[in-house]
Amino acid sequence: MLLTSVMVVLREVLEVALLLSVLLAATRLLELRARWFYIALLLGGCFAVIYGENLAKISQAFGGVGQELVNAGISIFIYILLIVVAVLLLVNWHKKHYKLLTMQFVMLLAVTMAIMREGSEIYVYLTSFWLHPPLLPSVMIGALLGAGIGYSLSALFYYLLCGLSQRYTLGISCIFLTILAAGMSLQASQLLIQADLLPAQEPLWDSSRLLEENSIAGQLFYAISGYEATPTPLEVVVYVGSIVIMLGIIAGVYYRISRD
């Protein structure tokens, strides 16, 4: 049970923690206060419990695909929020103090949403063993190990981002935000396919031999870029499209700023 527990928790923690470390590095870059971060942790935790408690009801909604719809909605929402964050980050880098409060609010919202989504799964998973004492120690230790690995990776990643020179931090933050955001919209498209709202197709390729989704490295790549060993053509289009749109917006903003 321990390995399973590690995998379940690690996957969810990594997704949120990597997003957090990029956003925190951006906060650091703009010399903002990290107060939003603590509020987001608190709010996200509360919402995760509420969402987890009501997951049964949500699942039954919309003809049994409520879970997919809500999760896809959250993912798309986060995608849009991350675009706004990237744009505001760029603008603030060049022209100080432009809608900084809005930016902090957007980051707070994105992190809260991400924690709510991933946290609810951990909550559902862990509480399901609450009534099964023989497995509980194993599950809890696994959860701690998973959370620890996820936390360590993103803490080191955060310090790596902060340790770079500021120009690189900006560029790499923007790139990572783009990849994370594209991963979000990829997940959304997968969920919508699962709910039969987007057409299902045969996979375009199978890279599971190269990198298994079920390995720690696979989970890491999944958390960073939404790695999918057997994507369908539509998923590939959505993923590439999301990246192109976001990079286009970033490039457009950058062009406009540097022209002014």
Binding site: G148, I149, Y151, S152, A155, L156, Y159
Partner: peptide, 14 residues
């Protein structure tokens, strides 16, 4: 503290 603990945690946990 954070970086050392993270490295120890990562290596030990894996």
């Amino acid at each position: 503290l954070i970086t050392l603990l993270s490295i120890i945690m990562l290596v030990n946990f894996v």
